[in-house]
Design a protein around this nucleic acid. Structure first.
Length: 221
DNA sequence: CTCCTGGAAG
DNA sequence: CTTCCAGGAG
């Protein structure tokens, strides 16, 4: 069971966009974004806070400023991920680059299905790369967005409630605005990191509290 | 389903 | 001390 009236949907999307207008964070990969920057940033961002990866990301982009520079390199990437944990990402990235190198299609023409075939890239990352890098309307679902959905809308645990549950992807798609989808996705990510945090969310200053199921029912405050 | 990982936050 | 983090692979 979930509460998803048309008015509630409009309220949610509008308020997320309004909040984003004043609070969007600035990161190197968000400045003049392209598919390459989005692709690299998603590797660094997996299970890692954005503030933690900035130094490693900048170093990486400085050495490999574009896809052609990266494809020429056949060495190791361990040093870039060593201080961040999840060292496996270095191997995933290397394997992904091999796949790109062996693909007849140009990296710039890669679509969702092409990215999904790369190691280290799942549905979330593929959508994020295409949406942020190519301005194409695609829904995003990660652990932060699931948390926001579960709190604001009334999502019960009927369907096992795990992260691959299509209910979250369907909801994300229905909420996505036609025009400002990119800003909305950035806003949703930042809203989850700054306001609707896992612990001690800032409900008192939240623009969505008047219609938030958890807030109205005094849950997670 | 489990595992990956160091580091920040509480 | 424990929980959590722009997920994905096996």
């Amino acid at each position: 069971m979930m509460i998803l009236s048309v008015s509630n949907k409009i309220f949610f999307t509008t308020q997320i966009l309004n909040w984003g207008s004043d609070n969007l964070r600035s990161f190197p990969w968000r400045i003049n974004p392209n598919v390459y920057k989005a692709f690299i940033s998603e590797f660094f961002l997996q299970r890692t806070k954005a503030s933690q990866i900035i130094e490693s990301y900048n170093k990486f982009i400085q050495i490999f400023p574009n896809i052609n520079a990266l494809l020429l390199y056949k060495g190791d990437f361990t040093d870039f991920f060593k201080k961040l944990g999840l060292i496996k990402r270095a191997t995933f990235l290397k394997n992904a680059i091999n796949s790109i190198r062996n693909n007849e299609k140009s990296f710039r023409d890669f679509k969702i299905a092409d990215f999904l075939k790369l190691s280290g890239i799942g549905k979330y990352s593929a959508h994020a790369i295409i949406c942020f890098g190519k301005n194409i309307k695609l829904p995003l679902v990660d652990s932060n967005i699931i948390r926001i959905f579960k709190r604001f809308f009334f999502l019960t645990n009927d369907n096992k409630n795990h992260k691959y549950d299509p209910i979250f992807w369907n909801l994300a798609e229905r909420l996505l605005p036609e025009k400002n989808f990119k800003k909305y996705n950035y806003s949703l990510i930042d809203f989850g990191a700054i306001i609707c945090k896992p612990l001690n969310p800032h409900c008192s200053i939240c623009k969505l509290k008047e219609n938030c199921y958890n807030f109205l029912n005094h849950i997670n405050q």
